[in-house]
C-alpha cells in the first residue's frame, strides 16, 4: 500500500478499509510528532495528543474536501490541539494542588540542568520552549516543517504580514536564547 496516494487511501477509508487509515497514520506520524513535541516539549502528553490528532482526523474525514493537502490538514489539527494543550496547562497553573508538569518541569530543569551534558537537539528544544507559543508555532511551521509564509498564515489563520513579523522576532529571540545557553555550556 506504500505507493498509494492520499486520495486513493481516503477513498479506501470511506469504504471502511482500516488498513488504509493505519497507512495514513504511519505516513504522517513523524510530522505530527515533530509539531507536538516542539510545541509541548518532552512530556507524557505528547503521545496522547498525537493519538487525538488522528482520532480527530478520522472523525472529520467526511468534512475534508481536499482544498489543502492532507499533510497540511493534519498539521493544522496537530497545531490546534497543541495550542489547546498549552492553554489547558496555563489554566492548571491557577488551580491550587494540581500537578505542575510539562513546560513547568522544563523551566525548573533548565535552571539546574547540566547543560554541558545536553546535545544540540535537546538544547534547541529547550530554547524553543522558552518562546511564547505564538512565536513557537511560527518557528515550528516555518523553520522546522518548512511551510511557506502563505501556508503558515492559512494554518494559523493570521495575515501573512503577521507571520513575517513574528518570524523575525521569534528568530531573534531564539538566537539570543541559544547563544546564552551555548556560551553557558562552553563556559563550564
Amino acid at each position: 500500500m506504500k505507493d498509494f496516494d492520499d486520495n486513493i487511501l481516503l477513498a479506501k477509508i470511506k469504504n471502511g478499509d482500516s488498513a488504509a487509515f493505519k497507512h495514513i497514520v504511519g505516513k504522517y506520524e513523524s510530522k505530527v510528532a515533530t509539531v507536538i513535541r516542539n510545541m509541548l516539549g518532552n512530556t507524557s502528553e505528547v503521545d496522547d495528543v498525537g493519538q487525538e490528532v488522528f482520532i480527530r482526523l478520522y472523525k472529520s474525514l467526511d468534512k475534508y474536501r481536499g482544498e489543502a493537502a492532507l499533510g497540511t490538514y493534519i498539521t493544522r489539527i496537530a497545531m490546534n490541539l497543541s495550542l489547546n494543550e498549552i492553554k489547558k496547562r496555563k489554566r492548571k497553573r491557577w488551580i491550587p494542588f494540581t500537578r505542575k508538569d510539562s513546560a513547568d518541569a522544563w523551566d525548573i530543569e533548565d535552571k539546574s540542568a547540566d547543560l554541558s551534558r545536553l546535545d544540540d537537539k535537546d538544547l534547541v528544544q529547550r530554547a524553543i520552549l522558552r518562546l511564547k507559543e505564538n512565536y513557537r508555532a511560527i518557528i515550528v511551521l516555518r523553520m522546522i516543517e518548512g511551510y511557506s509564509v502563505k501556508e503558515t498564515a492559512e494554518l494559523l489563520k493570521i495575515p501573512q504580514g503577521t507571520v513575517l513579523s513574528r518570524q523575525s522576532r521569534a528568530t531573534e529571540q531564539l538566537k539570543q536564547i541559544l547563544e546564552n545557553k551555548m556560551s553557558y555550556r562552553h563556559g563550564e
Binding site: 516542539n38 503521545d47 534547541v124
Partner: peptide
C-alpha cells in the same frame, strides 16, 4: 540556526499506529 532547527524532527514511541487504531 536553520541547520539546528532542521534537526528538530521527532517520532512517537514504537507501535504508535497500533495505539491509534486501538483508540479508534
Amino acid at each position: 540556526l536553520q541547520q539546528l532547527l532542521e534537526n528538530q524532527k521527532y517520532s512517537f514511541k514504537p507501535y504508535f499506529s497500533d495505539r491509534v487504531m486501538a483508540g479508534l
